[in-house]
Design a protein around this nucleic acid. Structure first.
Lengths: 220, 220
DNA sequence: ACCTGAACACCGTTCAAGT
DNA sequence: ACCTGAACACCGTTCAAGT
């Protein structure tokens, strides 16, 4: 997969050349570029879900920094489940920076899109939430996952790929000290946090906020 | 703005014709299509923030369905503030379905991107969260907003624009009863919820979960 | 300073023609 | 059934030339 060059960098001519075939032959297998991307998305999402299920090859989870305030084993189990799925999906989108922008997880016709939604919904039901709360919770979770992943993918793409990670952060944070940022004191106050930030930790922290909210809702 | 045809439907040739000018003259004012889109994004985000500030022309907020479990006026004020900004941004992206996919809110160089981040951050600081919690909270909020908005924009675009809303829902939900969905009992159980769903209510519900998590974190 | 439009270098998609 | 590549209808961008 030569998607290291992004969605736009994948041309049907390039793909045909890579496969040693003619340009038109692609259209025998696939209706167009859109379906090609959809299939690639579905494949990668499917693998992420497999990883979440089998528990192998799973990204190491950052420790949970929030206190859920419950020892109900059913609830804790559901939370662990949701966290595992969310982190597996994020990890996959982190590895393939074009994925997040492309993946319309919920409501997709592709079967793995449905698997995502089902994977989110079942634990929510097990937590004892009402159907309405389950519904809202599931779209909140999927929306959060692709939203944060997309945001971070864009942020990383904007950065100069030649510079080392540390210098990139210094460059951004350096701008924050300029007079342009006089109206944004809060952003400036985040200098230290931004310099030490880690994408997956940040993602997990927000996911845990959502999970905390859901636990509270189940308890209330 | 003829962006009723989406980002791809906006061609520089079409724009030049609309403006009654030559194709090349656009490049005198703007470096390319990318910058043009960035400017349009920034303008609309800016208007949304203005609406959130002035409290006029603001979308009616759905009632909060979660119990925050606090009467700390400073915290409640912060929550109201975050909710107002989030809803104003979502409303704008709901009105302009191409916006969400385009808007890299956080970390954008454009000044209104910074305004978004600052608007989210200040209330979080006022809630008494640690700097680390503020940082994580702000990215979670912005990520959630654009993520859910993007997901819903895609969902609405996929639908047949000729059919009335009710029939569209029936069509989707009808498919859920087919044998293809035998492996997705939870999705099937959401039939009733999906049929009666309302985008902005759904968005607000998830936002409130995040806010509930943040309030708990501040209290803990 | 500001505009013009032909020209260029690409796209995705189609389709008559091959095996 | 499966593949080919020229041809088509578009893009965004550049640039010598105008006023």
């Amino acid at each position: 997969m030569l998607d290291a060059h992004g969605v736009r960098g994948l041309t049907l001519r390039g793909l045909a050349a890579e496969l040693g075939g003619g340009l038109g032959s692609i259209y025998w297998y696939v209706s167009g570029k859109y379906e090609l991307l959809e299939l690639a998305c579905d494949e990668l999402i499917g693998r992420a879900l497999d990883a979440a299920d089998t528990e192998e090859r799973l990204v190491p989870s950052p420790p949970m920094e929030v206190d859920l305030g419950t020892d109900d084993e059913a609830v804790l189990d559901a939370v662990r489940s949701l966290r595992r799925v969310g982190l597996a999906l994020f990890d996959q989108m982190d590895r393939h920076p074009w994925l997040a922008a492309q993946a319309q997880l919920g409501g997709a016709e592709r079967s793995n899109g449905l698997r995502v939604w089902e994977s989110m919904g079942r634990p929510l039901a097990a937590m004892g939430l009402t159907e309405r709360q389950q519904f809202h919770g599931s779209t909140a979770l999927t929306g959060y996952v692709v939203g944060v992943a997309a945001e971070m993918s864009l942020q990383d793409r904007a950065a100069d790929p030649d510079l080392p990670k540390g210098e990139q952060l210094d460059l951004v944070v350096g701008r924050w000290q300029s007079p342009d940022y006089d109206d944004f004191p809060w952003i400036r106050s985040m200098t230290e946090q931004f310099r030490g930030h880690d994408d997956i930790v940040q993602f997990a922290a927000g996911l845990d906020l959502l999970l905390l909210g859901l636990v509270r809702q189940a308890q209330g």
